[in-house]
Amino acid sequence: MTPVKKHVTTKINGESVEFLCEPRQSLLEVLRDDLALTGCKEGCNNGNCGACTVVLNGRPVNSCLVLAVEAADASIETVEGIAEQGHLDPVQQCFLEGAALQCGICTPGFIVAAKALLDKNPDPTEAEIRFSLAGNLCRCTGYDKIIRAVQAAAQARLAAQQSS
């Protein structure tokens, strides 16, 4: 017997979204397969790699470890919502300029987590960046470029704030 599908209303990147899902489906599955938000990636599907990171009610989570039904009446931000009106966020810009990616599978997860960090702590130390991104794994780039990109993004954000 297939369980009855659940009707879920939630907010994704500021817009109200409705979908039907089976209780067993993860938020990652629904975002990618049903809502065509393929920015979040499936690396491990068990909470170890962070490639599937989205922000759920203000906190970064592994979307592979959230049931889609749990997202009812929540607010979700994915990597697709980070650039504003066609302008890359400083985190995205700095990853690009600092070549902080190779294959790019881990990148959306890093960008979502790094932006969540800077929103909370605008001027983190290197140790704080490394600690906060410990749940994101990269198999290609090596972490130094990623850390430097996040440091550069923090500086760019602070500079933009001062000049505005």
Partner: peptide, 9 residues
């Protein structure tokens, strides 16, 4: 316990 994402949940 785990990383930041795990601690959120």
């Amino acid at each position: 316990i785990g990383g930041w994402q795990i601690q959120s949940r």
